[in-house]
Design a protein around this nucleic acid. Structure first.
Lengths: 227, 227
DNA sequence: AGACTGTGGACTGTATGCAGAATTGACGCA
DNA sequence: TGCGTCAATTCTGCATACAGTCCACAGTCT
C-alpha cells in the first residue's frame, strides 16, 4: 500500500474533522426550518412528526428543542410542548436595540484591533455582496450580509460578544429575510452598507458605530410590515 | 360541611400554581451547584452520578445540560460529555465588557421610563443591602446586589435585554461570589453602589451608565486573583 | 338549548435499555 | 524505567417503552 494513503488528501484542511452529534445537526436543521418558514412562527411542534420528518428519534430532537429554547427561537410550554416563538413589533424593536448595543461595541473593538488582512476580508465580502445586489440575487446577498456582520463580530475578538450576537441574529434572521423584499428598502440598506464599509476601511470605530446604529434603526422600519 | 372548605386557605395566592417540569428544576439546581462550587469549574459531569444525586434519570438531566450549555455555563464535548466551563482572565474580561454594554443600555432606559414606585423599590433593595454590609452578611449582600442589577434590567422593560443579562450574570455569579472576599474590595464596591443609587434617584441615566461602567471595570480588578 | 362532566385518543415527560466510543489500567517491550 | 498497545470497563448517545397530562367530543343533566 503506498504511503500516499497516510497523508491528507488534497482538499482536506488541517482542522479537526467536525464531530457532529445528532443533537447538533438537528439544532441547525431546525434553525434553518424556522428561517425558511417551514416551521411557521406560532406553530406548535409535534415531536413525533418532526422526528419522523428528520429521521431521528424523539430523544435527540427534544434535546435540540431545549437548546433552541435557550437561544430564544422557540418557547417551551410545560405539558403542552414547544411552539415557534412569535414576534411582536415591540419584541423585534427590543431585540434590535440589544443588537445595536452589541454591534456598536464590536465596531469599536474591531476598528481598534483588526489587521489589514481582516479588513480586506470584510471589504471583499462587501464587494461580493454588492455584486449580488447588482444581480438582484436576494438569497446570496442576504447570506453575505449576515456574514459581514458576523465577521466584524469575529474580528472584535470577544467570544462572549460573538455568542450573544449570534443568538440575536438567529432570532432576527427570519424577519430580516422577509424584510428586504421591497426594492426601495433594499436600496436603502445597500447605501448604508457602503458607508459602513468606508468607515471600516478608515478604521473609524466611532463612525462605524454610528452608522451601524442607524442601519439597525432603519432595519426596524424596513421589517415593520413584515409582522 | 361548612363552605369554608371551598375558599382558599390563608396562605394561598391566587396565582396559577407553578408547574415546573423536572427539566426546569434540574436546570436551576445545576446552576446553583455551579455557583456554590459543588460542581467545580473544569469538572467533567458524570451523568449517572449526578442523576442519582438529584434522584432523576438521565433523560431530563441531559436536557437540562443542553439548556445550560446554551447559557454558556457548561460546555458540551461530543463523545465525551459535558464539563463545567472554565474561565480565563480574558474570558471574564470579555464577559464583563458585554455585561457593561447591556447594563449601560438598561441604565438609560430605566432612568427614562421608571415609575417613582419602581425607583423606590430599587432604593429599598439598596438600603437593605447596605444593612447587610454593615452586618458583614456577605451572602445576603451578594443576593441583594444581584437583585438590584436585575431590577434595573427589569425596569428597562426589554425582555430580550433582560434575558441576555441574566445569562451573563449567571456565568459571572461564581466568580463574583469569590471576588468580594477581601474587605477593602468589598468596601470599594459598596461605595460605587452608593453613587449608583444616587444617580438612579436623580434619574440621571448618563451618570448611572458611567458609574455602572466603572463598577464593572473595577469588578474585573476585584475578581482578578479569584482565578 | 346550554352548560357541565366523563371518556378516549394524542402527545408530552420521564425512565430504561442497548450499541458504540472513550478512558483506564495492565502488560509487554525497548 | 518509560512508552506503546490492547483489552476491560465506563460512559455517552440514541432509541424505545411507559406513564401522566392535555384536548376534543359526546353524553347527561338542568
Amino acid at each position: 500500500m503506498s504511503s500516499d494513503h497516510l497523508v491528507a488528501p488534497a482538499d482536506a484542511t488541517n482542522l479537526p474533522i467536525a464531530r457532529l452529534t445528532l443533537h447538533e445537526q438537528i439544532v441547525t436543521r431546525l434553525r434553518d426550518m424556522v428561517t425558511d418558514g417551514s416551521l411557521p412562527s406560532g406553530q406548535r411542534i409535534n415531536e413525533v412528526a418532526v422526528g419522523e420528518q428528520l429521521g431521528v428519534s424523539r430523544t435527540p430532537l427534544r434535546e435540540a428543542l431545549k437548546t433552541l429554547a435557550g437561544e430564544g427561537l422557540i418557547e417551551l410550554v410545560p405539558g403542552r410542548g414547544t411552539v415557534v416563538r412569535k414576534f411582536t413589533l415591540q419584541g423585534v424593536a427590543d431585540a434590535l436595540e440589544v443588537l445595536k448595543a452589541l454591534e456598536q461595541l464590536a465596531a469599536h473593538r474591531a476598528c481598534a484591533k483588526a489587521t489589514d488582512a481582516e479588513i480586506e476580508m470584510v471589504l471583499n465580502l462587501h464587494r461580493r455582496m454588492m455584486d449580488c445586489y447588482a444581480a438582484r440575487d436576494r438569497l446570496s446577498y442576504f447570506k453575505l450580509n449576515q456574514a459581514i456582520h458576523s465577521a466584524i463580530l469575529e474580528i472584535a475578538g470577544n467570544p462572549t460578544l460573538a455568542r450573544m450576537h449570534q443568538m440575536l441574529q438567529a432570532q432576527m434572521k427570519r424577519i430580516r429575510f422577509i424584510g428586504n423584499e421591497r426594492a426601495e428598502k433594499w436600496a436603502g440598506a445597500v447605501a448604508e452598507h457602503e458607508a459602513m464599509a468606508a468607515a471600516l476601511a478608515a478604521r473609524d470605530g466611532a463612525a462605524l458605530a454610528v452608522l451601524l446604529g442607524q442601519h439597525l434603526d432603519n432595519t426596524l422600519e424596513r421589517v415593520r410590515d413584515a409582522l
